[in-house]
Structures are given as structure tokens and as C-alpha cells.
Design a protein around this nucleic acid. Structure first.
Lengths: 125, 125
DNA sequence: CTCTTTTTCAACCGAACGGTTGACCACGCT
DNA sequence: AGCGTGGTCAACCGTTCGGTTGAAAAAGAG
């Protein structure tokens, strides 16, 4: 469990149950039992999910009597957003630049083997 | 392998090697062998990684002789960004609202069991 | 046709994952 | 003290994951 922070966050959100928990915590804090209620898995399973979210820094548990209210730590989202934005921007920029290069180049004077690579902006999944 | 699209994308980016591949593809298209070179794993392993990225819609492979240039499909990032932004905004808004409520409330008139929940904005991991 | 290059497919292996059951700890209540 | 409630720990189980090796498909080069 010594993965880098970014891997932990992405991995934590790769599970639909965990994403749903995050969604519900965005509305307000909740206890483990409250969180577990809607799903047809045991409370222990949900507790494990929360541990994963906590290790990823997405969630924090405070102690309050025997209850352990779970709180969403939204600031960790920035880690992902930064990573994503960086490469999306980079790719889009390259896309635009390559487009220009191809436009300003006669069809039969292309770099050796490589074809124009139409990089079709096709169906969104 | 019938997971929902969002899970596939998050899961695909949960691996550091795969994230690195995406980072390098943002610079420009590349073949499997080129991509595999920097890592000390076999080409087959990288091919598997690419399959995961492709199934997530993050990457597309076109055919060109016996080579299969890999191209980054940046538009899929939006799926994640939308999800993240939605709940981050929601959580931040709630945070602000709750703050107001607590500020406008005398210390000993609190809803039954629940304490103020200091929701400390702790270390950003 | 044969040889080489690039990539994938198939089977296998150990580690991690999501889930279960059962025991346990911590606390409030009476 | 004794009980009930909320939560976690520990062991186990089947499946998935990242990796390997070995063979094969697909296409160009001799």
C-alpha cells in the first residue's frame, strides 16, 4: 500500500461504490452505518471502502462518542485536476499545432514513412 | 470487463506506468516499441497497458504497415473533470454554507447529538 | 518463399482487491 | 457490572491485475 498519492486517489475513485460514497458525502457528513445502509453489502465492506478513501486523503474521520462521522476532504481533488488539465491542454495544443503543419504542407511532401494520421475526432466512447 | 466508463478511466490512470505513457503521448504519437523502451518491463506488458488505456477510451491505435501508432484521445478527460468538478464544487459550497450556519448560532443551541464538527482544513497530503 | 520486425494472444504466477463471517474494542445507558 | 450499539480487526475466499514466457499473426525486405 505504498503507492504514490496520485495512484491512490485515482484508484480510490475507480470503484463505483466509493464514488457514490463521495457523492453522498458532498451533501453532508455521515456515519459508517448511514453510509452503508443503501448498499447490499456488509458494514465491514463499507468500512474498508472508507479506509481506502481515507488513505487516498479524500475523506477524514473524526471521533464523536462511539460514532465516527466521515467528512469529505475536497482539496485533494486538485491533485487530480492539475494532472488531468496539464496533459489535456498539452494534447490539445499539439493537436492544433499538428493541424497547422499539415495544412501548410503539400500532400506528397510528407516526412518519410509517417502518414498524415487523420487523428479523427470521432465518437466520444 | 463490463465496468462503467468512469470506472474504466479512473482505473486506467491509477497505474503510474500508464499515466507516464499518457504523459508521453501528449507530446506526440508513438509506437508500442517506442513506448516500451524506457521501462524495464517486456513489450507485452506495455501492450497490455495500452489495451487498458484503449478500453478506457483514452487512446486509439491506427494501423500503418506492421506498426500501430498510438494516439492520445484527450476528449475523454472531460468525463472525469466533470465528475470531479461537480462534487468538489458541491462540497465547497456546503463548507461555506455550514460555516455561516455555525457562525450565526449560539454555542449551546446545537442540533441534538451532532457537535459543530470542526472539519479542519488539514494538511494537503 | 523465407526471414525479420512489430505487435498481439494464451497460459500461467503471485499479489492485491472486494467481499464475507466471526471476534473484538469503545462507548453510552440503565 | 452488564447490555446494546457503532465500528474495526483478522482470517479467509474467489477474481482481477501486472507481470512473465512462448507462440503466433501481419506485414515489409531479401
Amino acid at each position: 500500500m505504498a503507492a504514490d498519492p496520485l495512484s491512490r486517489v485515482f484508484s480510490a475513485l475507480a470503484d463505483p461504490t466509493r464514488r457514490d460514497i463521495v457523492a453522498r458525502l458532498a451533501v453532508g457528513d455521515a456515519t459508517v452505518n448511514e453510509l452503508a445502509a443503501p448498499y447490499d453489502v456488509t458494514v465491514q465492506a463499507v468500512s474498508k471502502h472508507l479506509k481506502v478513501l481515507e488513505d487516498a486523503g479524500l475523506v477524514s474521520r473524526s471521533r464523536e462518542a462511539q460514532r465516527r462521522p466521515v467528512h469529505l476532504e475536497a482539496n485533494v481533488f486538485d491533485l487530480m485536476t492539475k494532472w488531468i488539465e496539464r496533459y489535456r491542454r498539452q494534447a490539445e495544443e499539439r493537436y492544433r499545432r499538428l493541424d497547422d503543419v499539415l495544412r501548410s504542407m503539400p500532400d506528397d511532401v510528407r516526412p518519410d514513412g509517417r502518414s498524415p494520421t487523420p487523428h479523427q475526432e470521432g465518437q466520444p466512447t
